[in-house]
Simulated assay, not measured.
Amino acid sequence: MSVFHTRPALRWLVPTGTALAIIGGGAAVGTFASAAEPSLPERSAAQLLVDLQTARLDGLSGTVIKRADLGLPSLPGIGGQGSAELTSLISGTHTLRVWHAGPDKTRLALLGTLGETDVIRNGSDVWVWDSQQNEARHSTLGVGGGAVPKGRPDHLPSTPQEAAEQALAAIDPSTEVSVGRSATIAGRDAYELVLEPRDETSLVDQIKIAIDAGEHVPLRFQIIPQGTRTPAFEIAFTQVDFERPDPAQFAFNPPPGTKVTEEPLTADKPATSPASLERPTVVGTGWTSVLVAKVPQLAAVADADAQGGQADLVRSILGGLPKVSGDWGSGRLLKGKVFTALATDDGRVLIGAVTPERLYEVAQGNR
């Protein structure tokens, strides 16, 4: 169980649940600048994990910078305003402002050049506001809180806490845990916890988590690919304040002229899907596990007779990827710096933080 589940204070900003940390692409990423390495009392990896478990976070506000460069290729068929916005969210550099004043008072603002998108929870009220479109969506949580609907601007981790939660939840015997170099992040001294896969089949070399020396809260999270020291994904505070924010930060009143849509919560209901889609399975454990999903629609799209906007778009995207084949069959391969995805011609999708050879091995055994 993740230490964040045993200490809810560390899960202070998860308005929409979490997703894979290893997603992204785009412009080159440099490491966040930090001051000279501070001199801190020695602490073991086990002690740092205990620090995370015992951390108590009553309030926080700050600025977070997120950068990604997973080496994804440019795919044809991706165009238009909506898709361009989606592409930008999983690449390059983004600035977010965050506020936390308890489990029922959280706010995240994704800042853009033309506006911002906010996700605000204030008690039972949840707002998602797009300033550029001047639109807001409102939901009301039932008794006991319940799940917050999906509405965050993107589904990547929004804070070092979220990213660290996903990484720490995966610690098992396949992971070597050690202490790295101390650092100064957002003007605060921090220890560094380092997670390394023991299996060289993984494309991930290290995951580094900088932990505040006083508050024991993650201040920076980095994913380092094999063969380089430059992070492929990095999220860090550039400014942080551990004082409880003013309640006014969580009170949202739609500006005049805002289009407001009331959305009933459906997050607690069982997810439904077409009968033709099977539940994905996970093959293997630890860093070299592979997610396998059967998507018959992909095989249908490969049929030259399949026409229509969606079929044409999928065919265009797949057509921009290199062809691969083997004893497992044939398909298209998407390879980034810390993950690989395989779409087979018979309607399977395989993805993992592994080499293509590992995907081919799994594809051969899961026809």
Rank of each mutant, 00 (worst) to 15 (best):
T18G: 13
G71A: 10
P149A: 09
V362C: 12
I235C: 13
P255F: 05
G62A: 07
T272W: 09
S316M: 02
E262N: 13
A267W: 15
R107G: 08
A167N: 10
F221I: 00
V126S: 05
L52E: 04
A46K: 09
P38H: 07
Q226E: 12
S316T: 00
P254N: 07
P197T: 00
G286M: 09
V240Q: 08
T344E: 04
D212C: 05
E361H: 08
D130M: 03
T113K: 15
F233S: 10
G26N: 06
G71D: 07
P322F: 01
S91T: 15
L72Q: 02
E37C: 06
P255R: 03
W127E: 02
G319K: 10
P274V: 04
F252E: 04
L219T: 09
Q81C: 07
Q249K: 06
E278I: 07
V301R: 00
L203V: 00
Y191S: 05
S325T: 05
T31Q: 04
P218E: 08
A299D: 11
P15Q: 04
E196V: 09
E357G: 03
Q364A: 11
S178Q: 12
V301D: 00
W287L: 09
A169H: 08
L114S: 14
V283A: 01
G145V: 08
Q53C: 11
A210F: 08
L350R: 02
E278F: 08
I209N: 02
P157Q: 03
G92K: 01
P270S: 03
I209V: 04
W127T: 00
T355P: 01
F252R: 04
I211G: 05
S330G: 07
Y360S: 07
G331Q: 00
L219H: 06
E361K: 09
A302L: 00
I22G: 11
V143T: 09
A147C: 05
A101Q: 12
T95V: 11
A363D: 10
S158Y: 14
T54I: 01
L96H: 14
R137G: 07
A300R: 13
R107H: 14
G308C: 05
T261Y: 03
K66S: 15
P270F: 03
S202F: 06
G151P: 10
G151W: 12
L265V: 14
K323F: 01
S289L: 00
W127Y: 01
Q133N: 15
P264F: 14
L89A: 10
L265T: 13
V119E: 07
G151F: 13
G112P: 08
W129F: 12
V282M: 07
A28G: 03
L20W: 15
D327F: 09
P197I: 00
R107K: 15
G347K: 05
E192Y: 14
D130W: 02
I171S: 06
L203S: 00
Q222D: 14
E176M: 13
D172Q: 06
L57W: 03
V282P: 09
Q226C: 08
G112E: 11
D154E: 10
T16K: 15
G352E: 02
R56E: 10
S182K: 09
G336D: 01
D303A: 09
T113F: 15
A169W: 11
E234A: 06
V64P: 02
P173N: 11
